[in-house]
Design a protein around this nucleic acid. Structure first.
Length: 424
DNA sequence: TCTGGGGTCCTAGGACCC
DNA sequence: TCTGGGGTCCTAGGACCC
């Protein structure tokens, strides 16, 4: 008998559910949350799905939906979702310190096999009661099987499923019914390749010889085979490994054609990513900039250029990163194109304490340290847009800033947007 | 007019070493 | 006729996740 099991806690359509927590009027209604720039649907409630809305569907297409008037569309409000996610993790911490934040709406836990189902029910009740978020909980001997259990939990009224208490033969039957494409770690490519080997269900995949799978596929798929057999190969990661790379790329709210605007945008993005580097105590020695006219669905001449520049030594200060990004953007810029997508990529990050400062002059180092400290203290008090270098320090929104026509308030993270209760 | 934004890991192949 | 055998490191690309 195993003494510990994996549990996965998964919020039902997280973004939409959070919006419903703060706005009772939209509970029970079809709700769709849109991507950045209000481009396409990223999350929707079951009610919206029932109306035929699909994940990834562009918003402009849905404006002609026959039942458009019933559907609630909202811009994404990542600050709010991130804050609710942190609160959920705090609740899990009250159950066990052995949890892993897997994504904004999912966490894995290690829980004792004894009373595991009761624990799962308690977690669900606590998150539902304290935060108002609906979750499902899957429990099993491996992470991959816990994900299977969570999918099953969705169909059940109690929203909890523990595969460890199902008898083995019945588990086999469950896996035989489970499409291989829905297995965690099996994407569209592998699904197609597996189909060629007549493997269409999780049960069939689990019965393949692990050695053969390793030779014909990869060690990743081999692990999945073992995990489906109930042998845990993917451990819980309580402390997340340090970031290896950081990316900040955005589709712009409006295409940009002017060189200055392209350079300003790259510089602003670099400052945002520099702040993120500092929060993670990481530093970057290489800056890559990417300019693109968007996808093939746009008219106009396409352009898609990358450039990179090594810094003298790794840093997370705003000034050198912004300068490098601006220089690269200027170099990559070509007139006559419409730029709709700009990105900064920082690969090969190192720990902040590894930076020696050997290659920076004392004067520059002093300037960078003072500037960075000033920027961090001002933004922590007055918000991200309060101060910055160049265009980033201008408070009015630039035209290319993200389109968010229907964003809800940042109820939990901004004093000026707090939820207000009115007495009748 | 309008189609997201992050991440991770693995593998194959090239370059280079002795 | 017949042209070694290991290693390491790096990069690009593929595949996956939410």
């Amino acid at each position: 008998m195993r003494d510990e099991l994996f549990a996965i806690v998964d919020v039902d359509s997280m973004y939409a559910s959070v919006e419903q927590v703060f706005d009772p009027r939209i509970r029970g209604r079809p709700v769709c949350v849109l991507s950045n720039n209000d481009g396409c649907v990223v999350t929707m409630t079951a009610e919206a799905k029932a109306l035929g809305v699909e994940r990834g569907q562009p918003w402009f297409q849905l404006r002609n939906h026959p039942r458009r008037a019933e559907i609630v569309f909202l811009s994404s409000n990542y600050g709010l979702y991130g804050d609710m996610s942190a609160r959920m993790l705090a609740i899990l911490q009250s159950v066990t310190p052995r949890w892993e934040a897997y994504s904004i709406d999912e966490a894995f836990l290690r829980i004792p096999a004894e009373g595991a189902t009761a624990t799962a029910v308690r977690i669900r009740e606590r998150i539902g009661g304290w935060l108002g978020l609906p979750v499902k909980v899957g429990v099993a001997p491996s992470k991959t099987l816990a994900k299977v259990a969570a999918k099953r939990a969705k169909q059940r009224t109690e929203r909890v499923d523990n595969l460890a208490e199902v008898e083995p033969r019945r588990v086999q039957a469950i896996l035989d019914e489970f499409p291989v494409a829905d297995v965690w770690g099996i994407g569209p490519r592998l699904t197609a390749r597996l189909a060629a080997h007549e493997v269409g269900s999780a049960g069939q995949l689990a019965r393949l010889d692990p050695g053969w799978v390793r030779r014909n596929y990869t060690v990743v798929v081999e692990r999945t085979v073992r995990e489906l057999r109930g042998i845990s190969c993917i451990p819980l990661e309580c402390s997340p490994p340090p970031r290896r790379q950081m990316v900040h790329c955005r589709a712009l709210g409006k295409p940009v054609t002017d060189e200055h605007e392209v350079v300003d945008t790259a510089s602003t993005f670099a400052q945002r990513i520099a702040a993120k580097l500092r929060r993670h105590h990481r530093a970057a020695g290489l800056v890559q900039v990417w300019l693109s006219s968007g996808g093939s669905y746009y008219s106009g001449a396409p352009i898609d250029v990358h450039g990179s520049q090594a810094l003298l030594e790794p840093t997370n200060a705003a000034r050198p990163l912004a300068l490098a990004a601006a220089r690269l953007a200027r170099r990559l810029y070509q007139p006559g194109y419409q730029y709709r997508r700009i990105g900064i990529i920082l690969p090969d990050l190192v720990a902040e304490h590894q930076v020696t400062g050997m290659w920076t002059t004392a004067k520059n180092r002093t300037i960078d340290e003072a500037l960075t400290a000033a920027i961090d203290s001002v933004t922590s008090r007055y918000g991200k847009a309060a101060i910055g270098l160049g265009r980033a320090g201008v408070r009015t929104r630039a035209e290319w800033e993200m389109k968010q026509q229907v964003r809800s308030p940042a109820y939990t993270t901004r004093w000026d947007e707090l939820l207000v209760a009115h007495a009748r």
